[in-house]
């Protein structure tokens, strides 16, 4: 075995630059605020005074009986359930179309014009989320919006002055639609890169064996992409639990009957308009726990599938 190296300048500087500095930053910017938020969540701090009276777990027990907060939690969980499935489903389908969905004669390739589709479907992701939200808020406007304009022009008179974001039936769906529109391009590009990493010979061999495009997508691409999909799922799941920008731009007041209110919005109002930072921190802690639980569940599921295969 090689002799252990002494802590020379080279090694020490490496440690400092690549380990200690990032760790110090992480501690100050991430761990310390976490600890602070947990501490504040045990106080009734208003946020604007130096006094932080300790109240124990009162904030948490109040949250359990707070119908508005529980509704926000339900809405956030609903987003967590639906947003990733819809976004990733569409992104996967599009990615398959522009990579292997092309003509069945000749080499495996995407549909005609796939380079063009690839670029335009990425466009929405380039626009800042807040702009996407504001643009769609105009599209959904009951009286002057593009959507109702088109619908009433083709004869769907029931949509005259229909408030997409103001009706309980449609507000959440309309919000999810905007988030999907804004995110699909990014995941599509992610999946395209992963599909291009698959050995072309595998795809061509499958085709020679008579596999259709759907079969190729299901039996070859999907298993190859499971790693990417899982990573994407975690990423978009965490995004769905946040989702502040889109919901705030579309319905800053929580939507009809609070049907689009999410936890992060409730944290914001509680902290800044109700001046109750203690409770807002408690909500933040709850959100963090939900996020950890979500990631933990995904990991468990992965372990279970691995064990099942073995």
């Amino acid at each position: 075995m090689a002799r252990r190296r002494q802590l020379d300048l080279d090694r020490a500087s490496l440690l400092v630059v690549f380990l200690l500095v990032p760790f110090a930053l992480y501690a100050v910017m991430v761990l310390w605020p976490f600890a602070q938020a947990v501490t504040y969540s045990l106080t009734s701090w208003s946020g604007f005074s130096p006094d932080k009276p300790f109240v124990g777990l009162d904030n948490y027990t109040e949250l359990l009986g707070d119908a508005t907060f529980l509704k926000a939690v339900r809405n956030s969980l609903l987003l967590l359930l639906i947003l990733p499935v819809v976004t990733l489903g569409i992104a996967f389908a599009f990615a398959v179309l522009v990579t292997v969905g092309g003509p069945s004669a000749g080499g495996v390739r995407g549909v005609r014009g796939s380079a063009f589709y690839r670029v335009i479907s990425f466009f929405p992701y380039v626009i800042p989320a807040i702009v996407v939200g504001l643009v769609w808020a105009q599209v959904y406007d009951p009286n002057n919006g593009l959507l109702n304009g088109v619908l009433t022009n083709v004869g769907a008179d029931g949509f005259e002055a229909y408030a997409w974001l103001g009706e309980k039936r449609t507000a959440m769906a309309a919000t999810i639609g905007v988030a999907v529109w804004g995110m699909v391009g990014f995941y599509m590009v992610l999946f395209i890169a992963a599909i291009q990493g698959i050995d072309h010979e595998v795809l061509e061999a499958a085709r020679l064996d008579g596999a259709g495009r759907f079969r190729v997508a299901r039996s070859i691409i999907a298993p190859y992409l499971s790693g990417s999909v899982r990573a994407a799922y975690i990423y978009i799941g965490i995004f769905a639990l946040d989702c502040f920008v889109y919901v705030q731009a579309l319905n800053s007041t929580g939507g009809p009957d609070n049907s689009t209110l999410v936890i992060t919005q409730q944290i914001y109002t509680t902290a800044f308009t109700k001046a109750d930072f203690g409770k807002a921190c408690a909500m933040g802690v709850v959100l963090a726990l939900i996020t950890f639980a979500f990631v933990g569940l995904l990991r468990l599921a992965r372990l279970a599938t691995k064990a099942g295969r073995a």
Partner: peptide
């Protein structure tokens, strides 16, 4: 009441 208010930005 003018319908659609619940989905209309208030200055609009």
């Amino acid at each position: 009441f003018r319908p659609g208010g619940a989905g209309t930005q208030f200055t609009a």
